[in-house]
Amino acid sequence: MANSNIVLHVADVHKRFGGLHALADIDLQVEEGKTHAIIGPNGAGKSTLLNVIIGKLAPSSGQVVFDGAVLTGRKPYQINQLGIARVFQTPEIFSDLSVLHNVMIPAFAKRDGTFTLNMLRALDSETTIREEAEHMLEDVGMLNRRDMQAGSLSRGDKRRMELAMCLIQHPRLLLLDEPTAGMSRHDTNTTIELLQKIKSRGMTKVIIEHDMHVVFSLADKISVLAQGRIIADGSPDEVRGNPKVQEAYLGGAH
């Protein structure tokens, strides 16, 4: 089949919040191993789209298919276990726990599944997972913060840690909701490098970003969302040249 390498298919998805049509007739196909950027003005429905994909919200109609499996109707933890991880727009982390433990926890989900009653085992004896987490923290440049309480991190560091929490699961599909927001230019560039490195390992990514530097450094394909509709999609060059996009988005703020 021609589209056999389509790993994520958002098919005719609508989402209404009362009178608000937050997502209208969304059809999105993401190719295996590619980085697909979604851009659009504030309130366009970008985060809502990710919420529908990971099962946080049920679509009003339509469905999401991941590698032949229908995601719609499954629980968030089941969707994660199929290999989908997400970095949230507002960091979703375990604020009361240490940075190291934050990164270890997702590794347990990957290794032991949705539930394990391992209460007589010592956490200290889980050396493999701890070392894995330490490597991951090194990759995002946060090993020196491993014993800090996660809640006390800066916004940018929280986001980098959340990225490490996703990457340690080696997901097949990584969803990133403004992964560099709140980061310094230096950390943004480190993150771009890291994401490029992951890409070379074949991980599929959907990335929402306002920073055009990040988008054009990473994206193979861009979809432009405005008022719940995809108004354009194509390669970065096609999108950049599209007058509708200029008008709705790039012309305004950038």
Binding site: P76, A109, L120
Partner: peptide, 25 residues
């Protein structure tokens, strides 16, 4: 002091994150 205990603390800290991390809480 077990992994199970750490999961309980994580549920207290952020149950939503636990679910999106693949745990049936």
């Amino acid at each position: 002091g077990s992994p199970f205990g750490m999961m309980l603390k994580s549920i207290k800290s952020n149950q939503t994150r636990m679910q999106f991390t693949g745990f049936n809480t």
